[in-house]
Design a protein around this nucleic acid. Structure first.
Lengths: 201, 201, 201, 201
DNA sequence: TATGAATGAGGTTTCATTCAT
DNA sequence: CATGAATGAAACCTCATTCAT
């Protein structure tokens, strides 16, 4: 079976990641076994080790993939043409897809691991992401609503929105029926009340 | 024929829970070993089994304790005399204590376990808690601000506030330096703008 | 089975060493399995790990024990009262015991390991032993035969005797029937011819 | 239908043997992997199996090669014209070459394997070699020194010399700096004292 | 009742060997 | 013929749990 194309190898590697992500999210990283993952991927346990150093490495790739997917949720390619409200709506609408639960789960496992290990680098990366998103939200809010009044802490609002995003992920995980869209609309409405120049007239 | 007083038994049981909670949050439930917990509690591994069925049972008690602690955060005993804003402030101020991270961690582990098992009972309990808190927030908001205008979805605001609470826990876990208090104040301010009758004048 | 006496623990540890030494010499260190050793020792595989870090550690203890036994062969407690020839005779007579083959085997495995790893410390230890034995042989030869003539390199003879000792071990390993005692006598005779003042008269 | 010349096949087979001998002596036969050997030989793991049955077979060829090389050390082509002392000197001088360590290592691994398996054939072969060398030494000693005196056990001296040869190999393995040449000279001197007719005059 | 030595199932990982390409 | 991806048996080791003391 020698001299397999790179595409084949990449596909095999990807199929292992998919299988592992499924098993890890279904049973938890610690409880999922390499044998299960191999079976799910339709290969032998030993084969996994040609593509990943060990279970930890495999888990890290899965978790990183989820973290990356979550990051990208905030980097909508069409954002340039969208208003703050539209983009926010779109970002939260994503959470209604059932498959985002898997990303949330793996992200939370990752977060727990990093917190336990006091993994400064990883936590710093999260902070950087936090700051990038905050800046993005700030920019969009100002573009839509113009400069904020003195008495409104736009920065804190942006941070709160990002915090609410994580809360929404956790709530959707535990209660898929919860209507986060309505909550977002309510927040938009509050923000509109406070920032929109039409308010108060 | 009990040679040992009930109080002693309860104390020992509690010391095991404390030790287990420490180990579980430090290493994760799966990675923490019964031997470590026993050492931390200053007893022998075998002794744990006189107080808890098995490791799962012990973990469940720890996680439930954390979940209970989180629940109580919203049920401030002095709430009767407090305004919505004061109570909210107090509840979020709790999150600045470093030790709440442990509760957050164990709660998240619990959440992940329940989601994996599709543990309907446990998820229902979370939903019940969610609804109770939402009702409480609604009640307090109405008591403070009076009936909401037609165009403000107070229910969704209450839900969003609860969601933000979970987001704040996650953010504090990953970035202890984040200023959730300022974010809460910003949200209060937004809510005030929308609901307070003084607005617009 | 708690609170077992130290004597019991030491005995158990020793029985593991005995079982491991048997298995290691019978199958080689690499080929012997922990399960076999456990079975030989009449315990479960897991129990071994309460007494030894891991297989390597266990093997090291076995090999060190063999090396120690070989060292002691040259340190006969009654040596003070014995002549060089008597002590030499006794030391080589030991090699007729079939059980010394085990020590030879484990020592050789150890030597191979140390050579592969270029384990300077261990090789230095062997050198120290070499020098100690050489000095001992020199001392005994001088005590028995007096100062050596100018043209006889007593030091080299002592070294050669030690080298021959190792050769004898290897030969006995491969050909247990070989008569090393006669060889020793022949060497003694040669040494006598050269050193004994009666020679040449 | 052979596409590849026999010479090419033989060359490749030889290169595998060289690579395997290097790996086996560096890491031990058990620890060296077929993949490593293949990499060292610059071919694929699968290709080895076209030239050797399996790892054991390959190891046997390597070990036999070493054993053969050691045998040949005693069968110096120019021996016919040499005295006992000259040939002995030459044979031991070989041990100063660092590369003989590899042969010693592999020979010892082979010896350990044969002893473990009680491999009668192989051990018999060693005995035959032993007897051939003994006879050779005897012949040479008689040719050089003439018939031995009654009181000198020339046979035992020959055996002892062969035993010393193995000891010298082991010592050189563990202490490359040891001066085996001087030891040999000392033994020659002893033998000369005892056998040379000039002695005593 | 507490102890902690022992168990042994089960997990991860390695690697000799095979065989489709 | 060579390749090297895949297999899968088997090894090491861990640790929740038990139970003799």
């Amino acid at each position: 079976m020698a001299r397999v194309s790179d595409a084949h190898l990449a596909a095999r590697r990807h199929s292992i990641l998919v299988a592992a992500t499924k098993c890890f999210s279904q049973k938890g990283i610690a409880a999922a076994t390499m044998a299960e993952i191999a079976a799910e991927a339709g290969i032998s346990p030993g084969a996994i080790y040609r593509y990943f150093e060990n279970k930890d490495d495999l888990a890290r790739w899965c978790m990183d993939e989820s973290a990356e997917a979550i990051k990208h949720a905030w980097e909508n390619p069409t954002s340039a043409e969208m208003s703050f409200v539209e983009l926010s709506r779109l970002t939260f609408a994503e959470l209604n897809k059932p498959e985002v639960a898997i990303d949330t789960q793996l992200f939370l496992e990752r977060a727990l691991i990093f917190v336990r290990d006091e993994h400064a680098g990883a936590l710093g990366e999260f902070q950087a992401e936090f700051e990038k998103v905050r800046a993005g939200i700030l920019f969009l809010m100002e573009r839509q609503f113009g400069p904020a009044p003195e008495d409104v802490d736009v920065q804190a609002i942006a941070e709160a929105l990002y915090g609410f995003y994580w809360g929404a992920r956790v709530m959707k995980l535990l209660m898929p029926e919860v209507n986060t869209d309505a909550q977002v609309e309510a927040l938009h409405s509050l923000i509109g009340h406070a920032l929109d120049k039409t308010c108060g007239k």
